[in-house]
């Protein structure tokens, strides 16, 4: 293992975070606070309780997941797309490092950023509503697994994209709708049964459900299923990344 190379890529990417602190950390925190104001205060005053917890408290895990998902994808896709765009990727490709090391560096940094962000949003949420986390270790496990999985997914998008439009397309048109429809702001059990079945096709439902269970022990689907789906998605992303590097897809001629 070329640990120094992993470290170099990781620190390079983290340095980019600190350099763009406003964009990376402050803006997601501001937008999450806005969600609290709009959903928590405005709608929460009408829906008092969901499955035994107040509405404001209920939406916290979903909001954290919303940010972690979108930020993981944004960070990782941009992290690998940008060197491709400006041409500095030549150095990564010509360095004595394996594909695994490249992925650990980029995906590790993107995941770290979104985990930090998720925790900051949690802390922000604690200012608005009382929070109690029943299973902190499971909470962290779901957070880390989701951050890593979606950073891998972002990495794939960043390699696939050959323009800024494509870079934005999947997060905007696929991930954001799936997250909003995945039970961030409501319990799937609140839906009519037909919609409920359709919603269960949405992978994000399982992530949010498992994450919410670690907080309040309430879940739309069983925790085992949530964990299984998360790991399954992780495995699919890993297989895709392995294929990308094996074939040099969009990286090497």
């Amino acid at each position: 293992m070329n640990y120094r190379a992993i470290r170099a890529i990781y620190l390079f990417e983290m340095a980019r975070t600190w350099r763009t602190l406003l964009q990376s950390i402050v803006s997601p925190v501001v937008s999450t606070s806005l969600y609290f104001v709009v959903f928590g205060a405005a709608i929460g005053s009408r829906i008092t309780e969901v499955e035994g917890v107040s509405y404001g408290t209920f939406i916290v895990p979903g909001l954290v997941m919303l940010s972690v998902l979108t930020q993981s994808i944004a960070n990782a896709s941009f992290g690998i797309y940008f060197p491709k765009f400006v041409g500095t990727i030549y150095e990564i490709l010509s360095a004595p490092i394996s594909y695994l090391e490249i992925v650990i560096g980029y995906v590790g940094a993107a995941a770290t950023k979104s985990i930090i962000l998720g925790l900051i949003i949690l802390a922000t949420a604690a200012l608005f509503v009382p929070l109690h986390i029943h299973h902190p270790w499971w909470m962290l496990t779901f957070l880390v697994l989701t951050a890593v999985t979606f950073s891998l997914f972002g990495f794939i998008i960043g390699i696939w994209a050959d323009g800024f439009e494509k870079l934005q397309m999947i997060p905007m048109l696929v991930v954001t709708p799936l997250t909003f429809l995945g039970g961030s702001f409501y319990s799937v059990n609140m839906l009519p049964s037909g919609w409920r079945t359709i919603t269960l096709l949405n992978p994000v439902v399982y992530l949010i459900s498992g994450f919410r269970w670690s907080f309040y022990e309430i879940a739309d689907v069983s925790v085992g299923l949530s964990l299984g789906m998360t790991l399954g998605f992780l495995a699919i992303c890993m297989a895709l990344v392995w294929w990308i590097f094996r074939t040099g897809y969009r990286l090497k001629n």
Binding site: N2, Y3, R4, A5, R7, A8, I9, L11, F12, A15, E91, I92, A95, P96, I97
Partner: peptide, 12 residues
């Protein structure tokens, strides 16, 4: 920073 990065990337 960029020159130091290159050195790290090559495992030195």
């Amino acid at each position: 920073a960029t020159v130091s990065f290159s050195r790290g990337l090559f495992g030195k």
